[in-house]
């Protein structure tokens, strides 16, 4: 089976709201695809449709060319983590993994392997109801990896994890992708995917806004701006503005200049005897790029009502 996820033109309405409005993208093996967008953008709904839990009004979601319902022993094809809290509180973590394993014809030994792999250790014998959210995420990862699937789908896996857990999760996702698996990871916070995802599918209002590599996205957002560090901020602003540049103060000692390149900035300041300590091409953060992209797509502005 080809380890790809092909989502094409998914549409789904909940009443008068279009949850999915022509959602289309492809997840390819060997890399982590970040699935980002504000809350309510349709990320979870898309994932549920891919997993055959929700039905779309139109469009298809195929895994290796097949609908999820057509997969036999699906956990050996697709591992998923939708909601880490979806556990029977009185069942032990091991019991949870065991019934999943048995439903797929997998052995108890495989359960012990993933318990070890996800770092659950002796906690596996405890009731899942007493787990912290971070521990539940680890249990969810163990469940997703049970069938050793070539495709992984994770909805907000960083939620509730402590910094140590986030570092672990990033490393884990990277190594899973490096093994040649297709990994789709959603988040509503771009910062979580920085340095993790290689490819991004940015969504808003049920459709794809950008489907691009991380490098391209940053380059596009950076534009040809120059960052300048100077102790004489006011003086520098006057000199540069007179030369036709658009200048914005971004800190007590930093300015962002656009309209002229860095060489010209240096020569203008040198001629005017304005001291500066640092000058260089501006590099946008992923967060900035994302904010710019989704500005129009955010459905619930802070303080806004539906």
């Amino acid at each position: 089976m080809e380890a790809t996820i092909e989502v094409s033109d998914l549409r789904k309405r909940f009443g008068s709201t279009a949850a999915l409005d022509g959602m289309t993208f492809t997840v390819t093996p060997g890399r982590i695809t970040g699935f980002v967008g504000p809350n309510g953008a349709g990320k979870s709904t898309t994932m549920r449709v891919i997993l055959g839990l929700d039905s779309a009004d139109e469009g298809t979601a195929l895994i290796g060319g097949l609908r999820y319902q057509a997969l036999r022993n699906p956990l050996s094809h697709v591992g998923s983590l939708l909601d880490a809290g979806a556990l029977q509180p009185s069942r032990s973590a091991r019991g949870h993994l065991l019934w999943l394993a048995h439903s797929q014809g997998l052995s108890a030994r495989r359960v012990d392997e993933v318990v070890e792999y996800a770092g659950l250790g002796t906690a596996a014998r405890r009731k899942a109801g007493g787990f912290s959210l971070g521990m539940r995420q680890r249990l969810g990862i163990a469940a997703a990896l049970l069938g050793d699937p070539p495709v992984l789908i994770m909805d907000e896996p960083f939620n509730g994890m402590d910094p140590e857990g986030i570092v672990w999760m990033r490393g884990l996702l990277r190594s899973l992708a490096a093994e040649g698996r297709a990994v789709l990871v959603s988040s509503h916070l771009m910062s979580e995917l920085q340095d993790t995802a290689q490819h991004l599918v940015v969504v808003g209002r049920g459709r794809v806004i950008a489907d691009t590599s991380v490098a391209d996205l940053i380059a596009a957002a950076s534009g040809d701006r120059v960052t300048l560090r100077t102790t004489a901020r006011a003086q520098a602003m006057t000199v540069l503005a007179r030369a036709g540049a658009v200048v914005a103060a971004t800190g007590s000692e930093t300015l962002t200049v656009s309209g002229i390149d860095s060489q010209r900035v240096a020569s203008l300041l040198g001629r005017a005897d304005v001291p500066f300590s640092e000058i260089g091409a501006h590099r946008a953060t992923l967060e900035e790029a994302y904010m710019e992209l989704t500005r129009d797509a955010v459905e619930f502005q802070s303080g806004g009502t539906r």
Partner: peptide, 23 residues
């Protein structure tokens, strides 16, 4: 960096069991 599309797809090491009602 551009995405590599030449990655070797992952092959599961788990034996795929027969799918059935008994499972």
């Amino acid at each position: 960096m551009t995405a590599t599309t030449t990655a070797t797809p992952y092959r599961s090491a788990q034996p795929v069991a027969r799918d059935g009602f008994l499972r």
